[in-house]
Design a protein around this nucleic acid. Sequence first.
DNA 1: GTTTAAATTAATCATTGAATTAATTTAAGG
DNA 2: CCTTAAATTAATTCAATGATTAATTTAAAC
Lengths: 225, 225
Amino acid sequence: MPSRTTPAKPRRRRVGRPAGDDGDLRDRLLDAAAVQFAATGIAAASLRTIAQAAGVTPAMLHYYFGNKDALVRALVGERLLPNVRPLVETLASAGETPLEVAQAFAQGVSAIVATLPWLPALWVREVLCEGGALREFVFREVMPSLPQVLTRRFEAARAAGQLAPGIDPRLMVASLVGLTLFPAAGAPIWQKAFGMPGLDMPALMSHTLALLGHGLATPSTEKPR
Amino acid sequence: MPSRTTPAKPRRRRVGRPAGDDGDLRDRLLDAAAVQFAATGIAAASLRTIAQAAGVTPAMLHYYFGNKDALVRALVGERLLPNVRPLVETLASAGETPLEVAQAFAQGVSAIVATLPWLPALWVREVLCEGGALREFVFREVMPSLPQVLTRRFEAARAAGQLAPGIDPRLMVASLVGLTLFPAAGAPIWQKAFGMPGLDMPALMSHTLALLGHGLATPSTEKPR
DNA sequence: GTTTAAATTAATCATTGAATTAATTTAAGG
DNA sequence: CCTTAAATTAATTCAATGATTAATTTAAAC
């Protein structure tokens, strides 16, 4: 039993440079920041909380990044963009038919989610919503290309008679994001609150691709009246 | 030109009960709060900013609502739920085929957006995302019914052979929200950044219903190889 | 060994935000 | 008219947050 006079917090680190080689602290701080930013939004996430999650003092965030804004920029530059850019480049040429393009998109999102589980929530909150803190920055970096690349591909498909009537090529980006990235951002909700434990990315992907492939009605019941 | 010694801010209200009958201030505060909450997220929206947008002092928020939490509850109780509940009730019986149910859903969302333009962004940010401030509260009030009602309807349709193969009835809620409410939350983005001025709710709705009706490939090019 | 650089904490500061209170003005009721 | 209640602002308080600095410990370099 610890003596009553020495509070002796269990594993409290002493002041000074640590013995063990903690050379990866910067990475751990970025990870903690990503999780916290995605969970509560960037504005609502305090540096104290992030530092605490990484087991250090908020002064370390100042030491490694300078200030909160620079931390956000580092996260975007070193984690977000490097993982999103390959997808954008892939989509410029992947697949032939519209459905194949959509499949490539869904697969790319699925891959990103597998490595960065916090990305969908952060993207939805801070990039896609009005007033999101990352909108300007991200749009300048990746997005000028992504929507236009995809739109051009779907427009070409329509010109070639490969796109179903009534589908707006320009709106396909919104539809694809809404069907893949967005559900991933709320996965815990759909899972727990709706009592569906089987909702993982593979299940979501096959469902979504079926929907994109032939819609939701069976041919026999379509327009029955 | 105003004299230099009297700053005399133009239309600064004097202290005390106002002459004109401003009996609707409480409503205006709720409106300003809704807009601000949707624009930056609840946590990041300051009472100062909300009060300023309504042209009054933050003390008025305390006067009418008590504290920020009560303001949020009032907004949910008096603006959100009354506008969302009718949709939930409609969906319990509207339409016959899955496509008709989806159409009723899309139309309901469209109607809500017309009256409360700020709702999609607020809903996506604070209800659907992990860590959203309204999740617990809203889920206890409306959501226990909405997803289950819709899921049951799509499951019945599948049992009746009206649902296309590969479609998961439980995931349809996520798909519908992702195709309707979610794009509405980011409408200004799709519009401005993608150079598509024609993106309004009617256009989005017809596109989405076409997608849900028959998928995105023309029958002739489906499975070409 | 001694010196120097790196990494870390504790402590502090300034700013902002939510919450509260006292004072003030006007409307309404008798 | 006089009194009372309602609505509003200015000013203040308290907690939390981002930012910063000085002190401290260890590793590395010579």
